[in-house]
Amino acid sequence: MTKDLPNIEPDSFQRPDLDTLSLPGEPGHPPRVLMLYGSLRGRSYSRFLTLEAKRVLEALGAEVKVFDPAGLPLVSDEAEGHPKVLELRELSLWSEAQVWCSPERHGAMTGVMKTQIDWLPLAPIGGVRPTQGRTLALMQVSGGSQSFNTLNQMRVLGRWMRMITIPNQSSVPKAFAEFDEEGRMKPSPFYNRMVDVMEELMKFTLLTRGRSEYLVDRYSERVESAEALSLRVNQRSI
Rank of each mutant, 00 (worst) to 15 (best):
D4A: 08
P10G: 04
D11P: 00
D11W: 09
D11Q: 07
F13A: 11
L18V: 13
D19E: 14
L21I: 09
L23Q: 15
E26Q: 10
E26H: 00
L34H: 08
L34S: 11
L34V: 11
Y37N: 12
R47T: 02
T50P: 10
T50L: 10
L51D: 07
V56G: 01
L60S: 14
A62L: 09
F67W: 06
D68F: 01
A70C: 05
P73M: 02
L74G: 15
V75Y: 15
E78L: 13
A79D: 03
H82C: 05
P83W: 07
V85N: 02
W94Y: 04
A97H: 00
E104N: 10
R105G: 05
R105E: 09
G111Q: 00
G111W: 00
Q116D: 02
P121N: 03
L122Y: 09
P124I: 11
V128T: 11
V128S: 06
R129S: 10
T131L: 10
G133E: 08
G143K: 09
S145D: 08
Q146H: 06
S147R: 13
F148A: 05
N152S: 12
N152L: 14
M154C: 13
V156Y: 14
R162F: 02
T165F: 01
T165M: 01
V172D: 08
A175F: 02
E178W: 00
M185P: 03
K186Q: 11
P189L: 02
V195I: 11
E200I: 09
T205V: 05
L206E: 10
L207E: 11
T208H: 12
Y214K: 13
Y219H: 08
A228R: 15
R232V: 01
Q235P: 04
R236H: 15
